[in-house]
Design a protein around this nucleic acid. Structure first.
Lengths: 102, 102
DNA sequence: ATTAAATAGTTACTTTTCGTAAGTAGATAA
DNA sequence: TTATCTACTTACGAAAAGTAACTATTTAAT
């Protein structure tokens, strides 16, 4: 996106949040830290895309990745402060969807 | 999207709002009714996609299309009640982006 | 009569992203 | 040695997005 016009910050935000699955992944993580497979099971997303999205979100400082060297290995993803700050926005969409969808 | 797991309404909502440009188009329409070219100029979007998105939003009852038979023709797009109801969610993302982006 | 100008799109084509299914890696257990 | 578990990665065909040029309609100008 070229994000020249309009509000450039919102534009940047939507580059992230407007990507397929991103908001649903964050919504899922609002439940608390979760493992790769837990998220994968909770959403109709494939491992390929989940992996891709989590990397993007980690790079943006929205999600944190923690590896626990157990057997087998456990990897947990959680929201950072920046990620948690999105709760208000996500809840608003949830509210809207409860009223206006279907 | 298969939208089986998680909240199916949120999932459906994100099918719409999570599409590229959709939220920015709605944000732009929060300024008031606007013509095709106005929206096109305000965002770095092409006519092809703008046309596609507006049709989707119209089909979902989020946006209304009004044709005025002037010369040359004037076509205005505006938010319906359902569309206006998204303002809270969009403003929350805007707020977040002002704090956390860049 | 022909050309130009303005708005609101549409078409054709290339590039990027997504979806699906199968495969990999590293460590243990049978 | 084979199987199992988790967390990914790879390969590839399909769908969506980006870009630029083109169309339709009506009026005005040359």
């Amino acid at each position: 996106m070229k994000e020249i016009c309009i509000c450039p910050r919102l534009s940047k935000a939507m580059d992230l949040l407007g990507k397929r699955w991103t908001t649903l992944i964050l919504y899922q993580l609002l439940e608390g830290p979760q493992r790769f497979n837990e998220i994968e099971s909770a959403l109709p997303i494939s491992g390929r895309l989940l992996s891709e999205r989590l990397k993007e979100l980690e790079k943006e400082g929205i999600v944190e990745r923690a590896v626990y060297s157990e057997v087998p290995v456990r990897v947990e993803y959680s929201l950072t402060e920046k990620g948690l700050a999105l709760e208000g926005a996500i809840r608003e969409v949830e509210k809207w969807s409860k009223i206006w969808i279907n």
